[in-house]
């Protein structure tokens, strides 16, 4: 029969072995998570898989187009930092600007709209908290047309698409967004900010304002919109950020 001291020594050995085993298993798990081919600046593919799981949990359990971003009084409006100049380098010639549309299922661009065409849509105005992926946020007022109204008028039927892709006229900046978020009632194609016409650094003549996403999805100076089955490429996803980026 073991003495108390022997019994304790036996249990201590066993427990430290188990703890060591747990540590090895944990390190192996971390190794598995971090394994796989990683493109420069991107995150390991298994991390992406978990972010994809998070996305499906959020989309099935939480997301609704009835969930609105809180709105604020005019007194709360701050000074929005014009973060990100990607795709804005060419000089903007406002009169020449056109928005190309490639509706769902079409082989190519079917229409090129002038800003006047888009301004025929009902005007919507919202003062929301614009949230940068960096962590800061600024209450800002935007006005423009709902992307859902735009879709219904210029690309009826494209609501059935899975994703929407947008890029700047030079193709340097590009985003893609899931369809429910694109059709959210607060998602706007905006041409006004804080009661003034959009400035160039904030995305004149037309930018996306999508409060249910981080700022990285709020593309400035949109040149082209396409409705797709697959997920069009996304600038910041390629640089290691979560594709969904939903709030």
């Amino acid at each position: 029969m073991l003495s108390n001291e022997q019994e304790l020594a036996r249990r201590t050995r066993r427990a430290f072995l188990a703890l060591g085993g747990g540590a090895v298993a944990g390190m192996a798990g971390l190794g598995w998570l971090s394994a796989g081919p990683i493109t420069e600046g991107d995150i390991p593919p298994n991390f992406r898989k978990v972010l994809g799981l998070n996305e499906s949990v959020v989309r099935s359990a939480l997301y609704s187009n009835n969930n609105l971003a809180p709105t604020f009084p005019a007194s709360a409006i701050g000074k929005l930092k014009p973060n990100g100049e990607e795709g804005l380098e060419d000089e903007l010639v406002a009169a020449d600007w056109r928005l190309e549309i490639k509706p769902y299922g079409s082989a190519g661009v079917t229409q090129k709209l002038a800003i006047g065409d888009i301004k025929t849509l009902p005007l919507h105005d919202e003062t929301i908290e614009f949230k940068c992926v960096e962590g800061w946020s600024t209450v800002t007022r935007f006005a423009g047309a709902r992307l859902s109204d735009f879709t219904a008028k210029f690309c009826a039927g494209s609501e059935r698409a899975v994703c929407i892709g947008m890029n700047t006229p030079d193709g340097v900046y590009y985003v893609s967004v899931d369809m429910p978020s694109a059709l959210h009632p607060q998602t706007l194609l905006a041409w006004e900010m804080n009661g003034e016409p959009l400035t160039e650094e904030h995305g004149a003549p037309l930018r996306l304002v999508i409060p249910v996403k981080y700022g990285i999805k709020n593309i400035k100076r949109i040149g082209r919109i396409e409705y797709t089955d697959t997920r069009p490429k996304d600038y910041w996803e390629e640089r290691g950020y979560d594709w969904y980026a939903g709030l």
Binding site: N67, L68, A69, P70, K131, S137, V212, G246, L247
Partner: peptide
């Protein structure tokens, strides 16, 4: 993480920046 889908919770905590 989800300040719009969980807007009630976020505002209960004083808003997005307070929660952070």
């Amino acid at each position: 993480y989800k300040p719009i889908q969980l807007a009630g919770l976020t505002s209960l905590l004083g808003g997005y920046q307070w929660a952070r």
